[in-house]
């Protein structure tokens, strides 16, 4: 069976075949694999004798794999989804809070022009201030927060539209 994953905006496909023994296809060749749970989220995997110990966290479609100090965040996608996915690039960009934080200063107000890479808002979390920058040239369409307000991770702070 083919498993499809998205990783950093790239699509990866991997073929696992279930027979007497599970096999994985790498570069057109098939190798036996063995998957063994050790504890809650720690697994031992043997791929044709090569052994790895990995941490795996599955949350719905998201699969986090922690291997040799690196975290890989995959999104599992079905074949149907893969075919219908076409990136719609709109001229509207939302500046979102990357984490729970507090708005310290709004640097750009509605209708002000902004350049790509220019700071639009300053937020503070864990006593550290960070300036969030505009990814595009454009104009501020909407400011959704006030100075001093607390915001959740992922909340939209400012909307910028390209001209």
């Amino acid at each position: 069976m083919i498993y499809t994953f998205k990783f950093q905006d790239q699509i990866y496909r991997i073929n696992l075949e279930d027979g007497k023994q599970t096999e994985v296809e790498i570069d057109g060749k098939k190798f036996p694999v063995c998957f063994q749970k050790i504890d809650e989220r720690f697994y031992s995997i043997l791929i044709d004798g090569e052994s790895i110990g990995v941490g795996i966290l599955k949350k719905g479609k998201k699969v986090e794999v922690f291997l040799n100090g690196e975290l890989y965040e995959f999104e599992s996608i079905s074949e149907r989804e893969r075919q219908s996915t076409s990136a719609i690039i709109s001229g509207v960009q939302q500046i979102k809070s990357p984490m729970p934080s507090r708005v310290v200063k709004i640097l750009k107000n509605v209708d002000e022009a902004v350049n790509e890479g220019e700071g639009v808002i300053v937020i503070e979390a864990m006593k550290m201030e960070s300036e969030l920058k505009s990814p595009i040239n454009g104009r501020v369409k909407e400011v959704k927060v006030k100075e001093g307000s607390a915001v959740e991770s992922g909340s939209v702070l400012i909307v910028i539209s390209s001209e």
């Binding site: 498993y3 994953f5 990783f7 990866y12 991997i14 696992l16 599970t22 994985v24 694999v33 998957f35 697994y43 995997i45 791929i47 790895i52 990995v54 795996i56 599955k58 699969v63 794999v65 291997l67 690196e70 890989y72 995959f74 599992s76």
Partner: peptide
Amino acid sequence: ALIAAALA
């Protein structure tokens, strides 16, 4: 990592 994800 991909193999691990698919197996999971």
